[in-house]
Each structure stands twice: as C-alpha cells, then as structure tokens.
C-alpha cells in the first residue's frame, strides 16, 4: 500500500479521466477569472485616470487594499465570510472566479494604464482632424494600438490565473489539487498524485508561455 519507495503510477493511470475533468474545471475557473480581472481592471484604470478626485480616490484605495491581501485570505473571505455575514452563499467555483478575478484586477489595471499611456497623442489629434467621432477614435485608433501593447502582459495574467486556480482546493473546488489530496488520502500515493499535478501545471503553463512569446513576436511594432 505504498509503504515502499518504488513508484507506482497505476493509481494515476486509473484516474486519468478524473484528472482530465479536474483540469477542465481549473482551466474554466482561470478563464472566467481572467475575464473578471479584465473587466475590473478596465474600470479601475478608467477611474484612476479620471480628473475627479472623488472617482480617483476609491480606485486608489481599492488597489492598495487588494495589493495587501493574500489570495488565500481573499478566497476564504469571499467564500465563508460573505456567507456568514450577509448570507451570500456562492458556489465554490463562483467564489474562486470572483476571488482570483479581484486578486488580478490591480495587475490588469496597471497593464491597461500602461497601454493607454503608450498612445501618441498626435494620433488622436490626427484622427480628430480627419473628422472621426469619439467612439470611432476609440475603435479604430486607440484600441488597436493599446491592445498591441497590452496583449503580451495580459497573456502573463492568464498564466497567473491558471496558477491561482490551484488554490481552489482550500474551498473544495474539485480541481487538480483537490483530486491529488483525495488520491493521496485514499490510495496512499501522495508523491505520485502531487507529481502529476505539478507535471500537468507545468505543461499548461509552458504551452501558454509559448503562445505569449509567439504573440509578443507577432504584435511587436516594426
């Protein structure tokens, strides 16, 4: 029963379909968490560039608070705290999506801020001079340039979200780590179980970093 030093991967092989499901759940959480981080990040970036102090201040305070909170604390606060104080009972998956989305939102806000700062004001003036409307300037001038700057670092946020999603096990999200915890307790194969998680995570992250590196090369301005 795993009391010898020899490795036994039979348990892992038998549970490969479960690992597949677990990876899908983790990737789903990471993807949704990325969307939440982008939406919140755009809002924060917009608020922080506002000329009204009353709009800037809350965004600044939110950024400082989120920078200080550990992801683990944030997850437990969202999942257990909100339900105990306000009776908001979120599913573990939804609690994870919100937590990692909020956690990464200050990073995405910084990325969007840098992207819009990279725009040459002369381009906007030129667009206005040719008679484009404000919405047209955003769609045809600002966004294409900003996205070119923002996409590679946003790719790194996707990778961050995949890693953050592994914390779901602390609130019993049935992802990779939870499955490994289960296998190490019921099958007494902790080394094989956690090594499998590490290998899967490595494959996913390396594949994503290759995509990010490719995007960087494609999007680089000549």
């Amino acid at each position: 029963m795993g009391n010898d030093n020899r490795l036994d991967w039979a348990v892992i092989k038998a549970n490969l379909p479960s690992f597949e499901q677990a990876v899908v759940i983790d990737l789903y959480i990471a993807a949704m968490g990325f969307v939440v981080a982008c939406v919140l990040g755009l809002m924060i970036a917009a608020m922080r560039s506002s000329s009204a102090r009353a709009v800037r201040a809350p965004a600044y305070a939110f950024t400082q608070i989120i920078r200080g909170i550990p992801l683990y604390v944030l997850i437990l606060w969202v999942y257990f705290g909100l339900s105990s104080a306000a009776g908001v009972n979120l599913s573990p998956v939804l609690a994870m999506v919100i937590s990692i989305g909020v956690f990464a939102s200050t990073t995405t806000a910084e990325i969007f801020r840098a992207a819009f700062a990279a725009i040459d004001p002369g381009q906007v003036e030129a667009a206005r001079a040719t008679g484009l409307r404000r919405s047209q300037i955003y769609r045809h001038v600002l966004l294409p340039v900003a996205m070119r700057v923002a996409i590679p670092p946003l790719g790194n946020v996707v990778i961050l979200q995949v890693k953050s999603a592994t914390y779901g096990a602390v609130i019993a999200v049935p992802g990779m780590v939870y499955l490994a915890q289960d296998l190490s307790m019921t099958q007494f194969r902790p080394f094989e179980a956690y090594a499998t998680v590490a290998a899967l995570l490595l494959m996913i992250v390396l594949a994503l970093s290759f995509i990010v590196m490719g995007l960087e090369r494609v999007l680089k301005l000549p």
């Binding site: 795993g2 592994t166 096990a169 902790p190 179980a193 956690y194 998680v197 590490a198 995570l201």
Partner: peptide
C-alpha cells in the same frame, strides 16, 4: 510554472512520503 500552494503540498506531503 508552479503555484506556491501546489509546491508546498508537493514537498510537505509528496516528497516527505
């Protein structure tokens, strides 16, 4: 590529066992 959580579990439970 690893999260701190996964790596701590790997060392504390996996390598130890």
């Amino acid at each position: 590529a690893f999260s701190t959580y996964v790596y701590i579990l790997f060392i504390y439970f996996g390598l130890a066992a």
